[in-house]
């Protein structure tokens, strides 16, 4: 959150400004009161660890939304990342490093395909990435003969450590997600590229006239996002020692939600990295907290959906009030 509290803010004003934060804390307290396990260090780090892959995908989504588009194929890039890496190890006997490179290449293939559609053919990002989604899903089905997982039990230790290892006691996946978050923050919020990306996202024609090479930026962004999501795929594959086709889809809606919760928290409604982090943590916390409440699966799912709608509505309403 980049809002600053001015001296004369009344209580109502504060609620308006920090409405979402208050709800965030309210849920936190509620979950903690319901089940003390929630507050235990192990569980809190579970939330963070469990949110790592979503965080990575949501970062990519933030970048694309900042360019004024949307990417429905982030899940495909994730799947491709996992598939390329697993196949590289299993069928080509590559070591962990080669496998990771292969995975990243897999993600970039998706990114390149998207940028051909969006920049080369001039298709709107929504429809372009939707067709990438269709095509990518189909390719996975064809390749796996209908969608069966490809498991690789004898995965190199180094690769598995991506999900299971730790660096100075901190889980590797959390470190990777944190590192990517910092990089994305610097690019999008602090660098001159970020300024150009935001400018073209807000008013493309003005960015063109100002001499910004929007096509070059768009192509780069889609490829970068493809690679980023592939990192998520690597972690997911390392975690379960297999590639499960079409598993990336489950991150799509949460990633979009996190980005827009984050954008709504920004004083001028821009998609931004800190906001996305907050959105991801909120979603992760709610999922975890509901789990600990011991509800049945369906009820938990429904509650999660309803909380998602309410949180988004609140964040957007809060932004609207702040603007007027």
């Amino acid at each position: 959150m980049t809002t600053t509290l001015t001296g004369s803010a009344s209580v109502g004003n504060a609620i308006m400004r920090f409405g979402f934060l208050i709800v965030f804390l309210a849920f936190f307290v509620l979950f903690a009161a319901w089940n003390p396990v929630f507050l235990q260090g192990g569980n809190l780090s579970n939330i963070i660890e469990g949110s790592a892959v979503l965080m990575i995908v949501a970062l990519g989504m933030t970048l694309i939304v900042a360019t004024g588009g949307i990417d429905l194929s982030v899940g495909i890039a994730l799947d491709f990342g996992a598939a390329f890496a697993v196949v590289a190890m299993k069928s080509y006997g590559m070591d962990w490093f080669g496998a990771m490179c292969a995975g990243l290449i897999g993600g970039s293939v998706v990114g390149i395909f998207n940028s051909v559609l969006v920049v080369g053919l001039g298709i709107s990002p929504f429809l372009a990435t939707l067709s990438t989604f269709f095509i990518g899903s189909s390719v996975q089905r064809i390749f796996t003969n209908g969608g069966g997982p490809i498991s690789h039990r004898r995965m190199p230790e180094e690769f598995r450590n991506l999900a299971l290892g730790d660096i100075y006691g901190i889980p590797t996946e959390a470190v990777v997600a944190f590192g990517l978050t910092v990089i994305y923050f610097l690019i999008l919020e602090r660098s001159i590229w970020g300024r150009r990306i935001h400018a073209m996202g807000m008013q493309r024609s003005a960015a063109i006239v100002a001499g910004i090479r929007v096509n070059r930026i768009l192509i780069t962004c889609y490829v970068v996002v493809g690679v980023t999501c592939a990192v998520g795929g690597l972690i997911a594959a390392a975690n379960i020692r297999m590639f499960t086709p079409l598993s990336g889809f489950s991150y799509l809606l949460d990633a979009i939600a996190a980005v827009f919760i984050g954008a709504a928290l920004h004083p001028r409604g821009r998609p931004n990295v800190p906001g996305t982090v907050l959105g991801v943590l909120f979603l992760g916390m709610v999922a975890n907290g509901l789990n600990l409440m011991g509800l049945n699966f369906n009820t938990k799912d429904a509650l999660q959906g309803i909380i998602l709608v309410s949180a988004l509505a609140l964040a957007v309403a809060q932004q609207k009030m702040r603007r007027s």
């Binding site: 949307i70 929504f126 809606l253 979009i256 939600a257 827009f260 369906n298 799912d301 429904a302 509650l303 999660q304 959906g305 309803i306 998602l308 709608v309 988004l312 509505a313 957007v316 309403a317 609207k320």
Partner: peptide, 18 residues
């Protein structure tokens, strides 16, 4: 509330299915 339709209805999709 002033939400973009894409976002509002996507979230509603999730909630209603739930």
């Amino acid at each position: 509330m002033g939400m973009t339709p894409l976002l509002a209805t996507l979230a509603m999709f999730v909630a209603v299915v739930g």
